[in-house]
Amino acid sequence: MRAKLEACLSTANQVFLGKEKQVRLAVACLLARGHLLLEDLPGMGKTTLSHTLAKVMGLDFQRIQFTSDLLPGDILGTSIFDKDVGRFVFHSGPIFAELILADEINRATPKTQSALLEAMEEGQVTIEGATRALPEPFFVIATQNPASQSGTFVLPESQLDRFLMRLSLGYPARAAEKALLLGESRRDLLPCLEPVFDHAGLAAIQEEVAAVNVSDALADYLLRLVEATRTHPQFAWGISPRGSLALIAATRSWAYMAGRDYAIPEDVQVVLPAVAGHRLRERADYSGSGDSSLVQWLLREVPVL
C-alpha cells in the first residue's frame, strides 16, 4: 500500500514540479479525510494540483468556478419542470462528485459559500426537503485568492475551521520554473496520468491512517500546543476542539506517509502550520489575514517533551 502511495506521490510530483512538501501535505490531507484550502495568487498552479490529485487518486472530478453571481442551486442542483413527464425532475449539481475543486471560493457570496461548506461538513445536502447523500469519498479542494484582492468575500472563521488544512503554494523555485517553461504544458500532461488508487485502496489507506498510534506523550504535546493558543494573550482565540481533532488526524496521516505506524512530535510540527495557520489570529492583527508568525511562535515556544 505504501508503495502505491509513493508511486502516487511521485506521479503528482512529475506534474507539479518542485513542490514536494505541499503535494505531500495535500495528499496527507486527503488521507485524513479532510478538505483542503489552497490559498494563493492566481496562476500558481492551484487548479493543476487539484486536477493532478483527482487523477492519481482515481476520483471522479468536478470543478466549480465560484463567481459572485453563483447561486446555491448552481452547486447543489435544482428541480426543473419537465414538460414531457409533467413534474419536477431533480438535476443534481456539480457537488455530487467525489472530488470537487471549488475554484476561487471567496469570490462567491456568503450564501453560496455556506451551501458548499455545509455540504462539506455533513456529507449530505438537503434540497427542497429531500436529503441526498454525497458520494463517498468526498473531498473538497477549495482555492481562494488572498483576501486583499478586490471582489472577494472573506470566508468567516467558522467556515475556515472546516478545512483541515490551508496550503499556500508559493512561487516555484527557479529550476522548477525553468523546467516548467521548457517542458510540456502541464495541462497536457494531465490526461496522460493513470490513477494509482481505486476506491477500495483509498478506503483501506484511510483506515490504516486512522489506526496510527498516538501515544499519551504525543497527545500531551498536542494539548500543550492547543492550550498555548487558548491561554496566551497574543492569540485572539484558541484552537477549537475540532481544530485539535484536525491536528491529530493530520499528524496521523503524515506519520503514516512517513512509513511509521506511530506518530512523533516531528509529525505534529510538520503539519501544524498547514492545520493551525488558518485557525489562529493574532490579537493585534486587525486585517484578519492570519499570520504564520503565530504558528512559528508555537513551534518555538511550546516544549516538545
Partner: peptide
C-alpha cells in the same frame, strides 16, 4: 532546544 523533538 525545548521545541526540538527527539528525532530532530
Amino acid at each position: 532546544q525545548k521545541h526540538e523533538g527527539a528525532r530532530a
